[in-house]
Amino acid sequence: MIELSGLTKRYGDFTAVDHLDLQVAKGEIFGLLGPNGAGKSTTILMILGLTEPDEGSVRVAGIDPVSRPVEVKKKVGYLPEDVGFYERYSGLENLVFTGRLNGLPMKEARRRAEELLEKVGLAEHAEKKAGLYSRGMRQRLGLADVLIKHPEVIILDEPILGLDPYGVKEFLETIVRLSREEGITVLFSSHHLYQVQQVCDRVGLFVSGRLLAVGDINTLSQQLFGNDAWAVEATVAGDRVPEKVVEAVKKIEGVTKVRADGNRMTVECSHDITAGVAKAIIDAGAGLLSLNRKEYGLDDIYYHYFEKAETA
């Protein structure tokens, strides 16, 4: 559905996107993951034909967005990062306006807007001015706004940024449901790996304009972490972690690395051994103050990735 080949964009000396090759199949949910400034938004702008690539080509449903942007924009719904609405119009009026810009007659646009507001759970706020919407509501209104044109592809740029955990879950579930029901191809960018991995069929890791790895989450995390996929952080009573505690923890099966720093200790392991760590600390006679299973952020993944690349 989306085909990028050799895509390059430069701003002066800075290369934002560097020879990017990527294929996204029809009906697939693809997550573009990367830290801020990795070139995710630039890639999205090029897919939409809102900015021209310096090299390489883009095809969306076989259409080149550089020469025929309007046709591409008919098929693609785009939710920009931190989407804005006309604040003096109600949510419904905003949707109807978008619908009419997409060639729907007034009546049809209104009917579809009401239907979509119901779908994204904003039906009771339909008449409220968009300026009074909360961040989460605005994001959901944005989703409805994208869907009103019956898109074949939807592209979401950092859609879950600034949403609370419940909002993120709800929002992602809505996207998955819609994609499965209507066979819509979804491409979204994010820097929150853990929230995104639950819904994506495949993800691509994107750093400094380059795609480091592509694949589904399992192969990817295997590829990136090998045996160090988990980590447990423990705080022990006293000034520093006693030596015997470290020794005891090291003996647990699956532990690959133990680091002690003051009264804090980080344990890397191949599977979840949180309970084992707790037991080992208490059995060694130390006071356990806190224990938590660490979730890897993208930073850690990149860190690991580069560490591996250097040692290899």
């Binding site: 939409l48 809102l50 924009k73 693609v76 931190d82 989407v83 804005g84």
Partner: peptide, 14 residues
């Protein structure tokens, strides 16, 4: 500034 321009540009208009 209101973030409506990029949304508007994503619609099928020149």
């Amino acid at each position: 500034n209101r973030g409506t321009l990029s949304r508007l540009l994503a619609q099928p208009i020149h």
